[in-house]
């Protein structure tokens, strides 16, 4: 697992109070991990803070799974 993936997973576990095992790449924040729309806003803010990236609202809306978050952050960091 990449560094990004590890860190994303940790943030998701902390913020949503879910079991680590449930945080699979395919897991949807809302459908699988019990988040509501405000939780996802907060989650994206936590990603921004942890990775030092800015995630605009239109991009944030498309981040619905753990995998989406990792991919977006990796792409941003590579750019």
């Amino acid at each position: 697992m990449s560094d990004t993936a590890e860190k994303v997973k940790k943030i998701v576990v902390e913020h949503l109070g879910v079991d680590e095992a449930k945080v699979t790449p395919e897991a949807s924040f809302i459908d699988d991990l019990g988040a509501d729309s405000l939780d996802t806003v907060e989650l994206v803010m936590a990603f921004e803070e942890a990775f030092g990236v800015e995630i605009p609202d239109d991009a944030a809306e498309k981040i619905t799974t753990v995998k989406d978050a990792i991919a977006y952050i990796d792409e941003k960091k590579a750019a």
Binding site: L38, E42, M45, E48, E49, E54
Partner: peptide, 10 residues
């Protein structure tokens, strides 16, 4: 300002 929690108001 962008760090403001979505839970601030509620």
């Amino acid at each position: 300002i962008r760090r403001l929690s979505p839970f601030f108001i509620p």
